[in-house]
């Protein structure tokens, strides 16, 4: 069973909207959490869909009873079933997602980080009725989210669930850099450099964003990483820090 990590130093760590779960094998996962604002937007989308479904149920009910007032009864039953059942059904069947959550990239998972069961989906939506519009106009849900570490409303606490953001990383292609200063550094480097994930990510982020910054700022930013690289590959001292990072990027991602 995964546990929420809670070390004494955690209170001093920089704040972030994530939760860290540690498995019994001591493997740590960091989940980006969805708080009330993201969830409010997905709730609005779901409410629009629920309204459309209710309208359709009302029209169908009227059509089946040929427009008589007796159609109101089945329509009210349908309203109740749709309003109470929509969230539980979607989250139970579609692995923790309603349409609104899918559009916002959110997913309900258990607070251990594993997929929710059908019972959890039903429970969080049933208890969730207290968090909603009636009787206290979202105040219990909002207060509860503010007070819990994982932005859980009452329904989440009852069912042992939380809502996380599914990270959709944009795929960025390899950037080809053709600048004389960079090409002058390339012959000093080996044809291929095997970099670890940290170095590869740092180089990739740097090259992707370097057009946004001035030349002097680039030099300032690149210097701390260019310094050890300069030593390791005995690069010429006149090579700029920016050119060194770009050349190493070239060798890491494009090779020769």
């Amino acid at each position: 069973m995964a546990t929420v990590s809670s070390t004494p130093s955690e209170t001093l760590d920089p704040l972030d909207t994530t939760v860290r779960l540690v498995t019994p094998e001591r493997i740590a996962f960091e989940y980006p959490l969805a708080g009330p604002f993201r969830r409010a937007v997905s709730y609005c989308v779901d409410m629009i869909l629920i309204t459309v479904l209710m309208l359709a149920a009302f029209l169908a009910s009227l059509a089946l009873t040929l427009g008589s007032t007796s159609g109101l009864g089945p329509a009210l039953v349908a309203f109740f079933v749709i309003y109470q059942g929509y969230g539980a059904f979607c989250e139970g069947v579609f692995n923790g997602q309603t349409l609104g959550k899918h559009l916002l990239g959110l997913r309900v998972v258990s607070d251990q980080g594993v997929p929710i069961t059908g019972a959890q989906a039903v429970l969080r939506n049933l208890v969730g009725a207290v968090d909603g519009l009636i009787p206290f106009i979202y105040l219990p849900g909002l207060s509860c989210m503010l007070l819990t570490r994982k932005f859980q409303r009452l329904g989440d606490l009852a069912a042992g669930t939380m809502v996380v953001v599914e990270e959709r990383r944009r795929r960025v292609g390899v950037i080809r850099l053709r600048e004389p200063a960079i090409e002058a550094v390339l012959p000093w480097l080996p044809m291929r450099i095997a970099a670890g994930p940290e170095l590869a990510r740092a180089l990739s982020d740097y090259v992707r964003c370097r057009r946004r910054f001035s030349r002097s700022r680039l030099e300032q930013m690149a210097e701390p990483l260019a310094r050890p690289l300069r030593k390791r590959f005995t690069l010429p001292p006149k090579a700029t820090s920016d050119a060194i990072l770009c050349a190493v990027y070239h060798r890491v991602f494009l090779g020769d």
Binding site: E198, A202, C209, R212, M221, A222, P224, L225
Partner: peptide, 15 residues
């Protein structure tokens, strides 16, 4: 560019 700056510093320090 604070984020990239911090990342470059951290990787540079580790190296």
């Amino acid at each position: 560019g604070w984020e990239i700056d911090l990342r470059l510093r951290s990787v540079g320090k580790a190296m």
